[in-house]
């Protein structure tokens, strides 16, 4: 059983270069399979480096975003795992620099959107809503616009990209970063 699993894993690794090449050609199914398959090894990679469980998700997401943004740099003559772990290592170091000593708290995405839309039900919620607006105001203009368009106005990533003259990928990544930055700002202010 164990050796069968090992063979399966090896076969999965062997398929990654092909999946990435298919992703470069625009094959979404292959790409989804690849991202799903590489997520557990990336977690193991981070766990082996003594990351606390609550940080691992964040770093894995950063790595997936970086892999997405850099997917055009993969070339078949390079071992895929070297390429992937090259990105992972870089993002891990970035993360350590940025969040090294910070406590990881959680602010729910949906809560953030509720307050951005100004749909508070109680005075306490309204107060938090004001702080969320302040957090929104400190974002760089592009991030704020992306967040408002995609989360408040309800535009799709593609529509927002068209309006802002950005690629869809850039919008996705900007939205993700903006949300993260807002959460960090709110955490700094005691939420």
């Amino acid at each position: 059983m164990a050796s069968g699993e090992k063979i399966d894993k090896k076969e999965a690794h062997d398929a990654w270069p092909e999946l990435m090449l298919a992703a470069q050609r625009g094959d979404a199914v292959a790409y989804q399979r690849l991202l799903r398959e590489i997520t557990p090894p990336l977690r193991t990679f981070l766990r082996a480096r003594f990351f606390a469980r609550e940080h691992i998700d964040d770093i894995v997401q950063e790595i997936l975003l970086a892999i997405h943004a850099a997917r055009h740099t993969y070339r078949p003559e390079q071992p895929f795992r070297n390429w992937m772990y090259g990105v992972a290592r870089h993002k891990m170091i970035d993360y350590l620099r940025k969040y090294g000593r910070k406590t990881a708290n959680e602010i729910n995405d949906d809560e953030l959107v509720t307050f951005m839309r100004d749909t508070a039900n109680t005075p306490e919620e309204a107060m938090l809503g004001k702080d969320v607006k302040q957090a929104l105001a400190q974002l760089p203009e592009k991030q704020r616009e992306v967040l408002l368009m995609t989360r408040v106005e309800g535009l799709s990533m593609a529509e927002a990209g068209k309006k802002l003259g950005m690629t869809e990928t850039a919008v996705k990544v900007t939205a993700h970063r903006a949300t993260k930055r807002m959460k960090e700002w709110l955490l700094e202010y005691g939420y």
């Binding site: 979404a28 790409y31 991202l35 055009h72 593609a158 869809e168």
Partner: peptide, 10 residues
């Protein structure tokens, strides 16, 4: 990330 994936030129 995979929704409406566009091809990229390697």
């Amino acid at each position: 990330l995979t929704q409406d994936l566009k091809p990229v030129k390697p």
